[in-house]
């Protein structure tokens, strides 16, 4: 509408002159547009390169670790996370995740995968696992042995005390400790 207003307000005599001026200006400025576009492209390239260098330096420095540590240890962040986890929305989200059957489907697919059972077989047959199981068995035998030994030592003392009481003799004082260094 504004163009129409300008077009209508412009005297008809001046219109050819104005068109001529516009075309002359465009012809004059056409070489400059290429230069401007090239300059803009170079500036953008330089900006991207600068940005990449800045990201590389950030990743290489300890600053990122410090930022992450500070963020995780931040009381406000932790409080916010706890608040989110304690909210009913989080519970509803988890409920909806289970109700969707996605996990059931995931488990079905996982259990149907032969690679999983192959991995489990490999882990079960690994030396570390078999050693842990045998250690567990030995540990149980140790525990049993310790218990029997402790009770037998108590029984030793009890039988001796009873025998001495039976013949009215005072409790004995054991002799010097034997030398078992050899």
């Amino acid at each position: 509408m504004l163009d129409d207003f300008h077009a209508n307000s412009r005297p008809r005599v001046l219109r050819p002159l104005a068109d001529f001026g516009t075309r002359a200006a465009m012809t004059t400025l056409r070489p400059l547009t290429g230069v401007v576009e090239a300059a803009a492209g170079a500036a953008a390239g330089a900006g991207i390169s600068l940005e990449r260098r800045a990201v590389d330096r950030l990743l290489a420095s300890d600053e990122l670790e410090r930022i992450l540590t500070t963020t995780v240890n931040s009381p406000s962040i932790q409080a916010a996370l706890q608040h989110v986890l304690a909210s009913s929305g989080a519970a509803r989200l988890v409920d909806s995740l289970f109700d969707s059957g996605l996990i059931d489907r995931f488990l079905e697919r996982l259990l149907a995968n032969d690679s999983l059972w192959h991995l489990i077989d490999e882990i079960a047959a690994s030396p570390a696992v078999t050693a842990a199981i045998s250690d567990q068995g030995l540990g149980f035998a140790d525990q049993l042995g310790d218990d029997v030994r402790m009770r037998s030592r108590k029984a030793d003392d009890w039988i001796e005390r009873a025998a001495r009481r039976l013949i009215h003799r005072p409790p004995k004082a054991l002799g010097a400790e034997p030398d078992a260094s050899t």
Partner: peptide, 15 residues
């Protein structure tokens, strides 16, 4: 742990 702690009694020896 190769050191003696005392003399073995009757119950221990029987077991």
């Amino acid at each position: 742990p190769d050191r003696a702690a005392g003399y073995a009694g009757l119950a221990t020896r029987v077991i």
